[in-house]
């Protein structure tokens, strides 16, 4: 929340008028009373005070591992945060248009796998983790993937290609990892148009200067 300090000329505001924090415009100084701008800068480390910046590193290509960064990145953008996303290793599948429609979700090695629907058969069953061997049954990955996609769609969450469109429109900066790109023999035409470039790890480290980094 922010208290308006300087309303436009001719405006009459009540005492203690509460303006939501929109991250810009007229807001009272976020620094502690008496603290100078310089010491506030020191408290945040050596980085200059500017718009908030976040960098996401997507290293996984499973469907369930694609969503966290896409959702958080999108949320950050709508909070006015500058967002950079680096797709590396299996994460490159998220921006590869030949694969990103077909990302899969598997039960295998996911001990947190339980199904809310099972509670209807017997109460308590919805909290039981599925036997790991089930993940290896033929067709199980396809089944689990379809189910997750349906659950996401029910919550009005876009699928991965459409999510990338959304991020691109909202102004996200997306990059593909050079090493993975060469290793997987990907061609640039296959990358989602929102990907700004194929860059090296050190390029990304430079871009991410001053950012809060989230590794997925």
């Amino acid at each position: 929340m922010t208290t308006v300090t300087m309303p436009p000329a001719g405006y009459e505001l009540s005492e203690g008028f509460i303006l939501p924090n929109f991250g810009d415009g007229m807001r009272s100084s976020p620094a502690a009373p008496g603290a100078s701008a310089e010491s506030a800068g020191e408290a945040r480390g050596a980085y200059p005070i500017g718009p908030r910046k976040m960098a996401f590193i997507c290293s996984k290509g499973n469907l369930d591992m694609a969503y966290p960064a896409l959702i958080m990145g999108n949320a950050a953008l709508s909070e006015g945060v500058e967002v950079h996303i680096f797709f590396t290793f299996w994460g490159l599948d998220i921006v590869n248009t030949k694969t990103n429609e077909k990302l899969k979700f598997t039960l295998a090695a996911n001990t947190a796998m339980h199904m809310p629907e099972l509670g209807r058969i017997k109460p308590g069953l919805e909290h039981m983790s599925m036997p790991q061997a089930m993940g290896n049954l033929p067709g199980m990955t396809g089944f689990a993937t379809r189910m997750m996609k349906k659950q996401m769609a029910d919550l009005e969450i876009p699928d991965v290609p459409e999510f990338l469109d959304l991020l691109q429109a909202a102004g996200a900066h997306m990059y593909a990892c050079r090493l993975t790109f060469d290793m997987m023999k990907i061609i640039e035409a296959d990358l989602h148009p929102g990907v700004e470039g194929v860059i090296s790890a050190s390029d990304f480290i430079e871009i991410a200067e001053g950012a809060q980094i989230v590794f997925v």
Partner: peptide, 26 residues
């Protein structure tokens, strides 16, 4: 949400960000 404004309302996300820079949804 912004996504619903695009999917149901037919608004362009880029335009919404241009009209209300920073935190458009809020």
């Amino acid at each position: 949400t912004l996504r619903r404004m695009q999917a149901v309302g037919g608004f362009d996300i880029k335009t919404l960000f241009a009209l209300y820079p920073g935190k458009p949804a809020k």
